[in-house]
Amino acid sequence: MARIEVHKDHCKGCGLCIDICPVNVIETSKEINNLGYHPAQYKGEGCTGCTLCFYTCPEPDAIVVYRKD
């Protein structure tokens, strides 16, 4: 099963990952992180491990994709 991890304090809430996810499993969190943004968060299931959220994310350490976990 694939999954992602969003490191919420390194996310700038740009929404690009949410927009690109083909199966719509990322959403905006209500929380405000220490950079002052609403970070992205994984809905918890359904990730196919397509990696697109990783590649579209401009931040080096905001998203980790585990393709075979």
Binding site: G13, C14, G15, P58, E59, P60
Partner: peptide, 14 residues
């Protein structure tokens, strides 16, 4: 010091 100086959604980071 884990994050870029770029604006949210900036292509440079990608």
């Amino acid at each position: 010091q884990q994050d870029t100086h770029y604006c949210p959604g900036c292509g440079h980071g990608i």
